[in-house]
Amino acid sequence: MEIIKPLIQYLAVIILSPLLLGLINRVKAKFAGRRGQPLLQLYFDLYKLSYKTPVYSRTTTWLFRAGPVIGLSAILCALAALPFAGRPGFLAFDGDFIFLIYLLGLGRFFTVLAALDTGSSFEGMGASREVQFAVFSEPAFFLALAALSKATGKLSLSGMFLALEPASWQAAAPALLLLTAALFIILLAENSRVPVDDPNTHLELTMIHEVMVLDHSGPDLAYILYGAALKLWFFGALIASAVLPRHSGSWLYDGAAFLGMMAVIAAAIGTVESVMARLRMIKVQYLLMGALVFSILALLFQTGR
């Protein structure tokens, strides 16, 4: 029985992730006075892409094909260690948060290599931007999780969120607030959302993440899109777990509350995207530095206690 529930949770994540993007798009459409695309659009897209024949440029090597596969595998692995509604993921172990960060780093590294492999100037530019912004968002992410670890005294991500109680918010509100804010900024940056990137633009010169995957097609592109949806879930779940510390003990009730929180986060992302413009590329780093500073402060508050 103890293996079944984590598996069901994992399955739920794998199935529900693409729905988050549908929700975001729906919120944006409401703001714009449009009807919007179907909630399940990404599922349709993934299905369509899955049976298409990919096209590979003669200038690319195995790296180009490996990028999407490794990217998807890395995030699938990471999700296995992620707690769900306060329940540990089945891959949880002490120190797993460092492992997770490296898994995401590995996915990014291969996405960047695959982009560089095409030799296209657009993709090179995107790779350069991706890496430049990762320089700020990775340490911010690392320190945010370190602060959380310090606040809860646990070394595994599942342990941290399990130990997180309403009382922790009373005891360490500034630190938790700061790290939640940092996580939200990192979520926007890592998932190429406004104000860092614009997921809807068709203008290659302004893209960060999207431009790196321009040459992928067919199932490879499906892996990338699906991987992106999973990554959004990953960061959303961290925030949802941080702001929902109360656990009733009922698996169904906690699960429903958690899913509801994920929907709220999707709506929040959609709202941010609807009410503000994108940042100028050179100012993105200031936003990410803000996230880094939040994380550092959160860690400092906890260390001083």
């Binding site: 714009a32 104000p195 995207e273 009410v275």
Partner: peptide, 13 residues
């Protein structure tokens, strides 16, 4: 112009 800076309201209107 509004659409290019990803500011949806003006772009849609």
């Amino acid at each position: 112009l509004s659409g290019d800076v990803a500011y949806l309201p003006t772009a849609s209107f």
